[in-house]
């Protein structure tokens, strides 16, 4: 099925090709690569490094899905999308899944006909301000100039928050995070607002991160997660349970270091055995190999490892687990059981 799109267009036949309305899962298998929509660049979540390799927390999810389906974590075609293009890209089938810190909202789920397959990061919108501004709370921001990245739920939350608190503000809309950074650092706006994780990632890229403070208020709930098209439940299940496998693996102590051992033979924990395919046939039910979860986890490790490697406290971004800790540790991550 590997053919040049250009020749396809030349022959016109190519335009009418692919009429077989197979499920996304079959498409991906046939194509041999997973098309995964990501941001155009947000350090820690999804950004190309100096060599053009995509790296980050959202990227890790894409790679895990690719590994689960195709057995190869590098068989991913990353499609950078903006706030404007992401939904069309997904709806039109240009991408198979979208892992672009997208907030799960009612209208996106119901009206735009997408299926959120879970939450990989519990976020909330916050503000970052220079320490020199002397602001310690978002309640003091009346009259401030606020930079916002357009095309997100952020600007709606912002309008609601300032309206609810009877404050006025001046929005400065910005297309990309890079420009937001530029404007904010130049002082063209007093504060910059986006998801708190994004703020941390942005601050990490500053020359003097310690000169800037993230204000304590969280003005919205932003559950971020991967999403797929509505109506293709098989594919939705694959993405959902790959994410759950990453989360469950952390809960059960399965890491990229010990997974080879644990998967080689059934251990004494039945739940782990079922997850790793040494017992039962969960993989088959998904339409995948029995060791799908092993491959998914081996690529970048379990949820905790992905988190620590890309955005955790030891990275420049330095996010603490907070809400994103396992439920056993007081967080909200809670994978349904594998049985």
């Amino acid at each position: 099925m590997k053919k040049s799109v250009f020749l396809g267009a030349l022959t016109v036949a190519g335009i009418a090709a692919g009429a077989a309305a197979a499920g996304t899962l079959d498409d991906v298998k046939a194509r041999g690569t997973l098309n995964c929509g990501v941001t155009t660049g947000l350090v820690g979540f999804a950004a190309p490094d100096a060599n053009g390799e995509w790296d980050g927390f959202d990227v890790g999810v894409c790679r895990a899905v690719a590994a689960a389906v195709l057995g190869d974590g590098s068989a991913v075609e990353f499609v950078p999308t903006t706030g404007k293009t992401r939904f069309t890209a997904l709806a039109s089938g240009e991408i198979d899944m979208l892992a672009r810190n997208t907030t799960w909202t009612f209208s996106r789920d119901v009206d735009l006909k997408f299926e959120f397959t879970g939450i990989n990061y519990y976020d909330g919108q916050g503000f970052i301000a220079p320490k020199a501004l002397g602001v310690s709370s978002a309640k003091e921001l009346s009259g401030a100039t606020v930079c916002i990245q357009t095309g997100t739920t952020t600007e709606l939350n912002l309008a609601d928050y300032f309206r609810a608190n009877n404050m006025d503000y001046e929005p400065v809309p910005i297309e990309t995070n890079a420009e937001g950074q530029q404007q904010y650092l130049a002082g063209a706006c007093d504060v910059y607002t986006t998801d708190r994780s994004g703020l941390a990632a942005t601050r990490a890229a500053f020359e003097n991160p310690s000169d800037h403070v993230i204000l304590p208020e969280t003005i919205s709930k932003e559950p971020l997660g991967p999403l797929v098209r509505h109506g293709d439940n098989e594919w939705g299940d694959v993405v959902r349970w790959t994410l759950n496998a990453l989360i469950a693996a952390e809960e059960y102590g399965v890491t990229s270091a010990n997974i080879a051992d644990m998967a080689s033979a059934p251990g004494d924990k039945p739940e782990v055995n079922r997850l790793l395919g040494t017992e039962g046939n969960l993989g088959e039910m998904l339409g995948l190999e029995s060791d799908w979860a092993v491959k998914a986890i081996s690529v970048g490790g379990n949820y905790g490892e992905l988190f620590e490697k890309n955005i955790g406290e030891n990275t420049p971004i330095g996010l603490s687990r907070g809400l994103n800790a396992q439920w056993t540790e007081g967080g909200l991550l809670y994978s349904p059981p594998f049985r």
Binding site: F6, A16, A17, A19, K84, T88, A89
Partner: peptide
Amino acid sequence: LFVANVVLAYFLPPGTTFDLIL
């Protein structure tokens, strides 16, 4: 360009994947 980017896909037969550059 907006049409190419966000609308055109709706007007093509299902399953067609033109890449963006085309």
